[in-house]
């Protein structure tokens, strides 16, 4: 527990001291989402129709921008070797680092999403469901991205490789995340989709812990 807290606090402190990284992610998210009215035209009905999908897709792409720092910096300055030598189980350390990543990019993304939703003319009834879906879905994005970041440590062109590896694994999250918002806008209950998002998260936690730790171990061999 102390190890988890130490890793978490360290990563949060690092993020706090260089906030431009999180701010870049948010800036990318909002700007990229606001490109769509220029691309598809500003008709309010059309924007309302695509808003939830645009927000989810852009949140996913914005999250992808930030994974390199998850293990890369620790790998470069030797911190990762110390983490590997530490007696604390590597699996929990991976989870702590993914949690820190979510707190520093996922939560700001969720906080910025109502702004993007309103500017894309998403009906206001859909915003609470959108927030709930993002709250359940973005931790999975951080965890899956954590696997990809651990796998591509030290790879040639790792920054390009990582999106190729994790995007197929992101598809279920985005499918159910968008379906939840669509269901609530159509007057149906969003509950089954939110439950599926929660199930994906529950399944991703152990998979990311085991696969991420295995990837980190073999990167140090």
């Amino acid at each position: 527990m102390t190890a988890i807290r130490a890793v978490l606090m360290r990563d949060l402190r690092l993020a706090w001291r260089s906030p431009q990284e999180s701010l870049t992610v948010i800036g990318f998210f909002v700007l990229a989402a606001l490109l769509f009215p220029f691309g598809v035209g500003p008709e309010p009905q059309l924007l309302a129709r695509i808003a939830s999908g645009v927000i989810w897709t852009m949140a996913l792409l914005a999250a992808l921008l930030s994974f390199e720092r998850l293990f890369q910096f620790d790998h470069e300055d030797g911190t990762l070797d110390l983490i590997l030598l530490a007696p604390a189980p590597l699996e929990t350390t991976v989870l702590a680092k993914c949690l820190a990543h979510w707190l520093t990019t996922g939560v700001p993304l969720i906080a910025a999403s109502p702004v993007a939703a309103i500017m894309l003319n998403l009906p206001t009834d859909g915003i609470p469901v959108l927030l709930a879906a993002l709250l359940l879905g973005t931790p999975s994005l951080s965890l899956i991205g954590g696997i990809g970041a651990a796998l591509t440590l030290g790879a040639r062109r790792g920054g390009v490789l990582l999106p190729i590896l994790v995007m197929p694994l992101y598809v279920p999250v985005i499918v159910f995340g968008v379906a939840a918002v669509e269901a609530s806008l159509a007057g149906l209950t969003a509950r089954p989709h939110l439950l599926l998002l929660a199930a994906i998260l529950a399944g991703t936690i152990p998979v990311a812990a085991i696969a991420g730790a295995a990837a980190l171990r073999q990167s140090a061999e």
Partner: peptide, 15 residues
Amino acid sequence: AFEDEARGTRAASIL
């Protein structure tokens, strides 16, 4: 993606 082929195989195996 890796200079070391064995490292690439192990990473890809996890994937």
